[in-house]
């Protein structure tokens, strides 16, 4: 089985590698790059623990071969924010107790970013429906829904501030 050369832009860093075609993007992230924040919770593309952003859109990195991401931008939980500079969604999950065991959390946060990207002001019902691809066994989703609502509000406010600053 020949290896295929790829260069994937991971969290802003062009990353060249030789990969076996059957290596999934999630395995590439976890096993080759030690970016273990992206998790694997199922093998039928349902739990969403592996959610990352590909060219700006959320995808399930367990349902994509690494070779397919050649030349593309991948953002993982490690790239969305850091302990010193939390993304508003990360901060909201913390603030609202939107996680317990933490295993689904990276995928939840990446999926939340997608929900807010598509609709900056989602209703509770929309949030619940749009979370259909992410399973959490700990929280009953209650505080996850609250976290996404509150993150969206913060991001709208920040967007408005940024817009205002640009106007001034």
């Amino acid at each position: 089985m020949s290896l295929v050369p790829v260069t994937i832009n991971i969290n802003g860093t062009p990353t060249p590698a030789q990969v076996e075609p059957r290596m999934l993007l999630v395995q590439f992230l976890r096993d080759e790059l030690e970016l273990t924040g992206t998790h694997v919770g199922c093998d039928t593309s349902q739990c969403g623990a592996c959610t990352v952003s590909l060219n700006g859109e959320a995808v399930k990195s367990c349902t994509l071969f690494a070779v397919q991401a050649d030349g593309m931008d991948v953002q993982t939980i490690e790239g969305i924010g850091s302990m010193d500079d939390l993304h508003p969604i990360q901060a909201a999950f913390w603030e609202q107790h939107g996680l317990q065991c933490g295993f689904c959390t990276p995928g939840m946060i990446m999926a939340s970013a997608e929900i807010i990207r598509r609709n900056p002001d989602p209703s509770e019902e929309e949030i619940r429906e749009q979370l259909g691809g992410n399973f959490c066994r700990c929280t009953g989703y209650h505080n996850i829904v609250k976290a996404i609502s509150s993150a969206a509000a913060v991001m709208r406010e920040k967007g408005a501030e940024a817009g205002q600053a640009a106007d001034d």
Binding site: L64, I115, L131, G133
Partner: peptide, 8 residues
């Protein structure tokens, strides 16, 4: 599917 499935 779900948002991630719809994106791919």
């Amino acid at each position: 599917g779900d948002p991630m499935v719809r994106n791919r």
